[in-house]
Amino acid sequence: MISLKQVSKRYPGNLEALRDLNLDISTGEAVLLTGRSGAGKTTLLKLVSAIEMPSAGEIMVNGQSITRLRRSQIPYLRRSIGIVFQDQKLLFDSDVLTNVTLPLHICGQSRSVAMKRARAALDRVGLLERERSLPVALSGGERQRLCIARAIVNRPSLLLVDEPTANLDPDYAKAIIDLFRSFHQAGVTVVIATHDIEVINRFPLRQIHLDQGRLLNHTGPTTY
């Protein structure tokens, strides 16, 4: 599903976010991307979703080489990936339902199909009753669930999640993690970037540990 070969990412000012990364994630696998803040977790997710391009190396996603993709092909790759952004990136002047139908409109779904599928996704994350609310009226946990609904509404085969439990209390965090667990059980490849020990302990999966842009592979809970 995801393959990285000798991937490095340097930002202007010679800031090296990732260094010679080699990594394989199989289809249907769920992995935790762990490490301190600034370890390169978000950068790795951005490279996999082609939001940024690597400075060196090759990235394959769903059999497509991201580094060889034409600019015009990138949107189509992103449509096959569900992304939950760390900063949520919600449309705050549009209601919950509009936020969730957006990816479907982008994919060319008709209005009726988009509505039906968006409501199904909202139902899945327990937000159906809030479909007419504005995101500002939602709690932190509800906003995170809204982001998840938007990420899954296109039925992606790959879900990239960046710090899903940041600023959430333990009960909300548990509910969110349980959601990802259910997606994984349904066959979706899930990559969760987190430095939340609770998440790591509650989700006993393969861990990909990053430290200063370098990869340290191991499984099991970690303490920082």
Binding site: R79, F85, K89, L91, L102, I106, C107, R150
Partner: peptide, 16 residues
């Protein structure tokens, strides 16, 4: 701009 940025991030083409 924010709406456009989000749309681009989730797969919108420039044409869209």
């Amino acid at each position: 701009q924010a709406e456009i940025e989000v749309s681009i991030l989730i797969g919108a083409t420039r044409r869209f």
